[in-house]
Each structure stands twice: as C-alpha cells, then as structure tokens.
Design a protein around this nucleic acid. Structure first.
Lengths: 265, 265
DNA sequence: CGGTCCTTTGACACAGGTCAAGTAATGTGG
DNA sequence: CCACATTACTTGACCTGTGTCAAAGGACCG
C-alpha cells in the first residue's frame, strides 16, 4: 500500500472512512479520517472545539496525502513496546488495548482506545507500549517523519496534538488515583462509568455498556485479578446496581449511585 | 510584581536564576529560566536535544518578557485542583508535589517535580491537580494566555512542549504499571532508583539519594501506607541493599540489585 | 458431542492495611 | 540548659481485602 499513489490512497481512504463496518461491534464510523485526527477530546463532553475548523481545505488535503489505512483483526498486535516507532495512528473504527509488561509477564493495560483516539506514543524513537486490537479495527496510519514535516507547515495541527496530549495526561492522572487509592468495587464501577461516558462521546447509547474486552483485560486495566473483577460484578448485580445482560453487555440500573461510587463518595 | 516593567522583571529573573539557593536543599540552580523552559526531558539521559538551540536570541527575549518569578515556602500551595488555570510554571529550584484527592480525603500524589520541570496541566481551563512545595521553591510563571499567543509566533516552542508532554505521558504509564502491578518492595525500590536517576539528570550525585518529601508523601505517591513504606525501608536495610544515613538520605548499597528489583526481575 | 475457552464460584492464604504504642529528633518557653 | 510538647518515623499485633488455587458451569465450535 505504501507504493500506491496519493490519489489511490485517497480513494481507499474514503472507502475505509465511510463504509467500513466492524463485524463484532456495531460502532458506526461517524467521522472522516480528517475528523478523526481532529475529533473532540477524550474527556470533554462538548464537540465544540474540533480543530477541523482550524484547517483550511488545502491543509486537510496535505494531511490526507500522507495517510494510509490499516485494518487489523482481533488479538492482532499493531506494534510492540520498544519497537522502532515509524508510524502514528488514528483509530477510525473498532477498539484497541495498549499495555506494558514486566519481565515476568505481569501486565498493565494503560488504556483502551476507540474511534477518534490517537495511537503511537514514542520515547526515544521506540514505542512506549504495545498495542493490540480487541475487535476488528480500522486505523489511519501516518508516517511519523512526514507528519513531523507537516507539523512545521501547519501550526494548528501541533496545537491540536498538544491539546490531545494534555487530555491524555489528565486521563492518566485519573487512572493513577484509581490504581493507587480506590477499592476493587470503586475501580470496577469507575470503569463502567468511564466506558459509558466514552460511548456517549462517540454518539452511542450511554446505557447498555458494551465491553469489547474480556475479564482478563479488565483486570489488567484495573490492577486486579479476573476473579476479583468477576466477584465484583456479581456483588454489584446482587445489590441491584447493574444487570449483566450477558458477559459483554451491562445495564447500569442506578447510574447516579454508580457515579457516586466511582468518584469515591 | 505583576506591575513591574519588563526590564525590572528581567533583572529579578536573573537574580532568581543565578543566585537563589534554597535553604534546606543543596540544589544548585544550574539553569537559566530559558534553559529551564527548554531543559532536557525528564526521562532521557542525554542533554543533547535542548530546544534552546532552536530559539534565536530575539525569541528568547520574547519568552523572558512574559515571565515573572515566584517563590514559595515549604507546605505552601502553588494552586489547587479545579481552580481556574491562569498560569503555567517552570520549576527553577526546590521541589514540589502534585496530587489529586478523593472526596473522603484519600490522596494520590501523581508526581514530584524538580528544577526543569513544567507545572500547570489544565483541563477545561481549570488545573488538573493541586501543587504544593516540599521545600523552599522557586518558579518562573507565565501567563497562560500570553504564552499561548507566543506559541503561535514561535513554533519551535510548541514542538518543545509537545515533546515534554509525551515524555510526561510515558512517565505516567510507568507509574501505572507500578501502581497496578508491582509489590510494595518493588514500588519502594523503583522510587529510590527513579529519584537517583532524576538527581543525575540534574547533575547531582546518583548516590546518597536525598528525599525532600516525608513518608506520608512517599506513601501517597506509591499507593501504600506510611507503615508499609517504613517497614519496607527497614527490610531493605536489613538485607544490606540500602543504608539509611538519616530519614531523608539513603545510600544505595547495591545499585545493580536494586535496579533489577525495580524493573521486576 | 467432546473439547476448548471464558467466566463464575468457593475455600483458603497472605500482603499490606489498621490500630496502637514506642522512639527519636526538633522546637519552645522558662 | 533543661522540662515539655510536637512531629515524624518505626515497630508490633492483629485484621481484612484481594490474591491464589482449584473446580464447576456455560458458550461456542469443529
């Protein structure tokens, strides 16, 4: 694909942007690739400050010209930690997990990524984490070097990236208080509330929360074991706070109470 | 101070940059304010890619013109979480902690900051965390709005900030694996190794590690209790891995072994 | 229909938390 | 210079939330 002309690339791009549907997820792709790169931040409720407005059509064209699209199947790695970082990606459909490992295999999932999210944090030219698809996933790939060239030409873009980075940083700090100071129950509830909020941001229903990841992934994200995650779900169910429609879909029966638990009240 | 002329500001600035010495710390201030803003990243060993080289003298002058200096005493807050964020800061001397609280008072310290570090992450125009001095601390303050204006004029600066943000993000992920997956022993050792590395980056000796913070702060940073931190120090001491010169100064007796423990071997 | 994988549940263990007391360092007023 | 208070750190005894180990569903699939 890297040998195709820009024109061909653009054509494929449009294909992917407007018509891809993942098989297991019912996530409609609501954004063009451009929109994805400049989509609203991961934490704000508002969609108001999309940087798309800051880019004029010729600038948009420039971005499109250095993009290719990638699709990966569930369980497929996108890249591994410490691998030379040649690309950055923007998720357009599906879901990914990013994680770090300790030498003995202990794993910490540092984030789940959904359409609109940016992937490819690097440190000293290597990726800072591994990334793997949870479900069939579509991404836009940017050559890192060419994107950097573009950054100096389109200052708005850099501003946008800086904004994304600081929101990710804020999210990372929320995760630190979760991992350092919250109980298992608070962690699980925080996780459900977070997924629900994230769905709303992507114009999906807040309520039956869909979990594209398995219990092991949830445990490795929350710093718990699968047994504790499972027991906590059972406990919340018995207390009438949630309902497990099935393994992967949870109904938040008392959203207000759950929000209180998540924030530590 | 905000009413003084730029010239006066610059004079004060130089004072603060070259002559301030904190009372409790023996941290010489090795950088000008400009250097601090563009000082090497928090995680790289190399000082090579200082963005200072990217700024021409007139650009440097522009930065200096929107700066004022601030000094705060130990235990003094710099700002609180959720407060409107009007300034960003660069630490030039001393040390700070940044933290978040849960409603019932549980606290997670998300970072300790030293000369060269940047403070003032905001989200939706309010600070994302509280910041408080550990020891007498000197900072350079930038009006956020004026800095933003400057960013559009000096693209290099934005690049530099983006670099700082992604390194902070990488550090945040290291902290997540620590909080989510490491034992108390591994956390404490990781902390000591991290402080030692951080001292080296600031051109100070790697070995007697100086702890400007108390046990409560260490516990709240590592997601433990003060008792566990204290017991772990004692255990490491008994095993001949460290030596407590006093409460606040620790000798790393077996650095290689400690590094292995920290990385999870 | 047997195998595989994921989730749930149960019994038990233990790392780290809690509560309480002891020790050391520092400051304060007489 | 000394009683005394204060604060920070350490240590001990005990407890509990979460981990560990093991087994039992349950869903999916060839």
């Amino acid at each position: 694909m890297s040998q195709t002309s820009n024109l061909q690339r653009q054509a494929k791009l449009s294909d992917s942007c407007f018509s891809i549907r993942t098989q297991m997820e019912r996530l409609p792709l609501q954004a063009t690739n451009i929109d994805a790169l400049v989509s609203p931040c991961d934490k704000c409720e508002a969609r108001s400050h999309s940087a798309c407005a800051l880019l004029d059509p010729s600038e948009q064209k420039q971005i499109v010209s250095i993009m290719t699209t990638v699709q990966i199947a569930p369980q497929q790695p996108l890249f591994d930690e410490a691998e030379p970082a040649e690309h950055v990606y923007n998720v357009t459909g599906g879901a990914l997990k990013i994680y770090k490992l300790l030498p003995d295999g202990r794993r910490q999932i540092t984030g789940f990524l959904f359409p609109g999210d940016f992937v490819g944090l690097m440190h000293n030219d290597v990726y800072a984490y591994s990334a793997e698809a949870l479900v069939p996933t579509a991404l836009c790939r940017f050559s890192r070097r060419r994107l950097e060239d573009l950054l100096s030409e389109i200052p708005h873009l850099e501003q946008r990236l800086l904004g994304m980075a600081s929101h990710e940083l804020a999210a990372a700090q929320d995760q630190m208080i979760l991992l350092g100071r919250k109980s298992a129950r608070e962690r699980v509830v925080s996780f459900l509330v977070m997924l629900s909020n994230s769905a709303v941001r992507r114009h999906q229903p807040a309520d039956p929360v869909s979990l594209p990841m398995n219990r092991t992934d949830i445990a490795d994200y929350l710093g718990l074991t699968i047994e504790t995650v499972s027991r906590t779900f059972t406990q919340l169910k018995k207390q009438g706070l949630i309902q497990l429609l099935d393994d992967k879909n949870i109904h938040l029966a008392k959203p207000a109470a759950l929000r209180d638990i998540a924030t530590g009240f």
